[in-house]
């Protein structure tokens, strides 16, 4: 699995309250399976998956397929592991923020997770997908789709109603995140020849207008 025959290594990380289904979500994504038994994640874990990414050009045409090796970090939602899990935020290129549609508190905590991400991720506005998980349990639903969408809009991130149990929207969510990352990657590299105040020789772009602007737009 870990031979070097791929074009990109993309690292994602799933986060959210304990029991919202992060592990199940990733298990469904990588293996297409579901285990209803709840096994709490000890600290951290990761799963891997190879996919082929086809970039879509501005005209909608799809380019050459690129082999992606995905490393999907799974984190413990439990508070006691917090210092450990947040340390791993910095290594991830994109994030899957999950909450449980049947648990309102997990939805309210999305805000906290977002601020945790702002502090610990590689930049202040990393790519994040919000996932309301367990959408198959419609009779127990506590969070409406509308309020979830509103929150996602507020943060300017995509929202998906997912089910790790039946696989609904699981692939889509990850694919959208991958697409965001690949596009961001292009932008980061593209930027390097656009002379907009940033001066570079051959290095990465590093706008240094001021500390604050750099933070807020994350150089991308």
């Amino acid at each position: 699995m870990s031979d070097g025959d791929y074009d990109y290594l993309i690292k994602f990380l799933a986060l959210g309250d304990s029991g919202v289904g992060k592990t199940s979500f990733l298990y469904q994504y990588t293996d297409g399976k579901f285990n209803s038994k709840f096994i709490t994640t000890v600290g951290i874990d990761f799963r891997e998956k190879r996919v082929v990414y086809k970039s879509t050009g501005p005209d909608g045409s799809s380019g050459k397929g690129q082999k992606i090796h995905m490393q999907l970090w799974d984190t413990a939602g439990q508070e006691r592991f917090r210092s450990l899990t947040t340390a791993f935020f910095r290594d991830a290129m994109g994030f899957l923020l999950l909450f449980d549609l049947t648990n309102e508190q997990s939805f309210l905590n999305v805000r906290n997770w977002m601020s945790q991400l702002q502090i610990h991720a590689y930049c202040e506005n990393p790519d994040i997908i919000l996932c309301g998980n367990k959408c198959d349990l419609s009779d127990q639903r506590m969070v409406s789709e509308t309020e979830a969408r509103e929150l996602a809009e507020k943060y300017g991130i995509p929202y998906f109603e997912t089910s790790a149990a039946n696989g609904q929207n699981v692939n889509q969510a990850v694919e959208v995140l991958l697409d965001l990352i690949m596009k961001r990657m292009e932008r980061c590299v593209d930027k390097s020849w656009i002379p907009d105040g940033t001066v570079r020789a051959n290095g990465p772009s590093n706008p240094d207008i001021s500390e604050s602007s750099e933070r807020s737009k994350c150089a991308c």
Partner: peptide, 24 residues
């Protein structure tokens, strides 16, 4: 620029702006 993408440098170059630390 292709290398910058494939090696993940685009990512590390940004991260270095935030963290003066070791990887997790």
């Amino acid at each position: 620029s292709d290398l910058k993408k494939r090696t993940g440098d685009w990512f590390y170059d940004q991260r270095v702006n935030r963290f003066i630390t070791t990887p997790a």
